[in-house]
Amino acid sequence: MKFPAFAYARPATVEEAVTLLASDDEARPLAGGQTLLPILALRMSMPSCLVDLNDLEELKSITVGDGVVRVGAMVTHAQNLASAEHRTHLPLLSAAVRHVAHEAIRTRGTIGGSLAHADAAAEMPLVVTALEATMVIVNQQGERRVAASDFFGGHFTTAIEAGELLTAIEFPISDHRWAFEEVARRPGDFALVMAAAGLKLNNGACESARITLGSVADRPLRATEAETFLVGKSVTAGVAAEAAQIATQDLKSHGDIHASAEYRRTVAGTMVKRALTRAAMEQSA
């Protein structure tokens, strides 16, 4: 249970970090370490070198401008939880990050680390999918941008290539009202099932809806059919239940020691119904 041996570097700039990563295919960036270090302790990965990003102050800030909230990849979950900007502009992120692990983990764990790890049961992948965020990825040639919908390639797989670094996440400020629901065995555990719902209402009728499910597949899922169904309707309890039914009827979830596939599908419906109902109430408040 001790970490395997690795070389270590603590670059002072993103450029240096990318050069270090590009020079060694087996090197890995070390963000908060709240996932990578357990993986090392369990010897599920044995990188040749850890490139510690903790001195990269440029990746630790939250900035708001031009209708976008830009969150540096090294911003911690604790920072996101405390952020007044997020409560105003990204209430879904504020609501979801409360469910990420425990205080002592949130102190060090980062949004970039969570996204780069891409655990389908983690909250941050769901949040960036629901809010249609853009990932900013840097390599030696420069910068490229990847939409959240193209970023996740399945369990623990993302669009980040060898020698690249996720440096920021850009969230467009949404005019939807948001609600987040999650079921987990204990506070801080990974989600068994979670859902986010966003509604834009006009005189009580739904103009646009976004429904995202998490922890039911190898990546976050948008329920586009249910989103289309809601357009033009008043989101009553009955309509929310119908949308939940549409969102989950073809869901092929997975069973494991924590929950069966059938349980996940059933609870996913309940999460969608509750999230829609709460998002609709947010609007009238």
Binding site: M1, K2, Y8, R10, G33, Q34, L37, P38, A41, L42, D52, N54, A78, H102, E103, A104, I105, T107, R108
Partner: peptide, 28 residues
């Protein structure tokens, strides 16, 4: 305890905030 961040036995305060000492490197 568990040496992978689950049990909380190694929790300490770093710059006043709680952190798992098993999920930080000594060099950090």
């Amino acid at each position: 305890g568990c040496e992978h961040g689950v049990c909380g036995a190694c929790t300490i305060l770093v710059d006043g905030k709680s952190a798992r000492a098993c999920l930080m490197l000594g060099v950090q």
